[in-house]
Computed example of a mutant assay.
Amino acid sequence: MSQQIPDLPNALTLAQRARNIRRHALRMGEVQGQGYIAQALGVADVLAVSYFHAMTYRPEDPEWEGRDRFLLSIGHYAIALYAALLEAGILPMDELESYGADDSRLPMSGMAAYTPGMEMTGGSLGQGLAVAVGVALGLKRKKSGNFVYCLFSDGELGEGSTWEGAWSAAHWKLDNLIGIVDVNNQQADGPARDVTGFEPLADRFQSFGWHVERVNGNDIGALVAAFDACRNLTEPKPRIVICDTRMAKGVPFLEARERNHFLRVEPQEWQDALALIDAEDVQ
């Protein structure tokens, strides 16, 4: 079962948390004038449900042994994870404007040695799920009841190491491992499904011995139900939540850009984007 997260205000809903994560990401992006903003906006709902519904952790002690682990395989999604860590109180809000600066704890690609709450150094895509298998297996051998979450991208589905990790997780019956794949169908070389076709994705993971939930990754209610199903499953097998998300969710003029894998945004557009996020009617 999900546990109450200590030392965090309880007044905000998950939708409000997701909006704040989007705001933090846009403010960090404005510092550099560019970045992987579309991914951060798209995955904000997933991160809100992960950090404010599903996971157990202590904001004041990011290395607490009793925490659930969240591994970010996609190093360039760091801006999204930093936004969640800021919202969770793991990172202090006054560091937000240091994003991408020299000597900052918030480098543009996630590095575990620099950032509290960053469990792995990503960037070499396709490695995260295999690393998560090792972490989950280690926790099993320590008799820990904690979960390991691993967020990876649809672009990583073309990497053989991802499927080696999937096979290994099923072999070891890692029921403490919850994979999260962000299916936004966009990568640097074009639509992800055209670069390396990965559908039918749910069937593929089921054939590897995983329990699969596939949801609209921008529907918070659906995400909550999927994460609860994965956490409460009694079968000894790994679990995965396949999240179909929309790049740049919540900012229509960025959603409409044909290629938004890496966005360069004009100065006034940052404020326009923030105004759109602020105007959302969230409960």
Rank of each mutant, 00 (worst) to 15 (best):
G75K: 09
H76Q: 12
Y77M: 13
I79H: 03
L81Q: 07
L81R: 04
L81S: 10
Y82K: 08
L85D: 01
A88R: 10
G89R: 01
G89P: 06
I90W: 00
P92W: 02
M93I: 15
M93L: 15
M93N: 11
M93H: 13
D94L: 14
D94N: 15
D94Q: 13
D94H: 14
E95N: 01
E97Q: 05
E97K: 09
S98P: 07
S98C: 12
S98W: 04
Y99A: 09
Y99Q: 02
A101L: 13
D102W: 13
S104A: 07
R105M: 15
R105V: 14
L106F: 07
L106C: 10
P107N: 04
P107M: 09
P107R: 00
M108D: 07
G110A: 07
M111C: 12
M111E: 02
M111R: 06
M111N: 05
A112E: 02
Y114F: 15
P116I: 11
G117D: 06
G117H: 01
G117I: 04
M118A: 00
E119H: 00
M120G: 00
M120N: 03
T121L: 12
T121W: 08
G123N: 05
S124Q: 15
Q127Y: 10
G128W: 03
G128R: 12
G128C: 15
